[in-house]
Design a binder for these strands. Structure first.
Lengths: 182, 182
DNA sequence: ACTGAAATTATGCGAGC
DNA sequence: GCTCGCATAATTTCAGT
């Protein structure tokens, strides 16, 4: 029986990181991050409160913006997008001011799953799914490198993706090792 | 009104990538990847079929393994984990056979959100959330670099994370630009 | 924060196309 | 074979306490 996820990640004694949230809120957040498909009744049982209480907490967390929308894992290979890649992008130093504008264009592209703004030599990482090596090349050569603000790119193929949260099934409930999803 | 997401990402004419899935299945998959919180009734309306039909499709997609579990976006800053990073890890050439074992240990760590197996110079990327720079340093110096199979690591701080799917609200339904979640 | 009632939704089955 | 509509079961939701 693993200890509570939040506590384990925080590795602290009794200090509450955010005064607005208590232990029950954190439990609910981790539970929904792990599996957002649970019914409110099942969620309530997992965190040991009445369904109405769990429901009220979830609503409050959503309104506070702490809890966002949920996303289902999809096997992109099944929808004709078997090739996944992470592309590191570096902008020209003078172009750093337009980084947000440029990233917004990226997330609007249908093949883009994630954009991570990072610190260091690169400016952001773009995770994409494509139909083929050709489409990946066209993406990197087209929307990405053709823009004059881009200084350089570095493409890494993604062979597999594991989710840390999936292995944190506490109490009752088991999850087998994640397959090719995500 | 944007054209269908799957079609846009695939950029094809009329070829179905997977014989098992039809257009309705793909629409449902994209819809749930974008927002898994929709009720079955609302999902049915979005894809223009009866609720029972949508329900049957979702069940079939889940049993086929094409549709996986859902995950709620959580603002990790609110739960005391404000520092996010992506760490590129390279293993010693001789240790490549144990890459899966090592990655499994990584995803079991409470601070790890994702592990991406990649091709190229690095072997995988690890996305983590931490309470502080000190905890991040301890993670990189401890579980990661202390293992003799690790040849080198490169840590990039994550300033922000945008999700491509959120901007693909078709038909009715709008999503404002994602904030700090994820 | 809990209990109980009312409204909404999910689920399974048989009919029709 | 796929979709639909209805009946039932389960869940959400909102009173009051």
């Amino acid at each position: 029986m693993p200890r509570r996820r939040a506590e384990a990640a925080q590795q602290r004694s009794g200090v509450r990181p955010t005064p607005g949230l208590d232990e029950l809120d954190e439990q609910i957040l981790w539970e929904l991050a792990r599996d957002a498909d649970v019914t409110n009744a099942a969620l309530a049982e997992r965190v040991h409160v009445a369904p109405s209480t769990a429901h009220a907490r979830v609503r409050a967390l959503r309104e506070a913006g702490v809890l966002g929308p949920s996303h289902a894992d999809v096997d992109y290979r099944a929808v004709g997008l078997p090739l996944q890649a992470i592309i590191s992008v570096r902008l020209r130093a003078q172009a750093r001011t337009v980084i947000k504008t440029f990233a917004a264009k990226m997330v609007g592209h249908p093949n883009v799953l994630d954009v991570f703004f990072v610190g260091g030599q690169d400016d952001f990482l773009v995770r994409v799914v494509t139909t083929s090596p050709e489409q990946l090349r066209d993406f990197v050569a087209g929307p990405l490198s053709s823009d004059p603000v881009v200084a350089s790119t570095h493409t890494q193929i993604v062979f597999d993706h594991l989710r840390g949260l999936d292995h944190w099934a506490d109490a009752d409930g088991f999850d087998e090792l994640r397959g090719p999803l995500g």
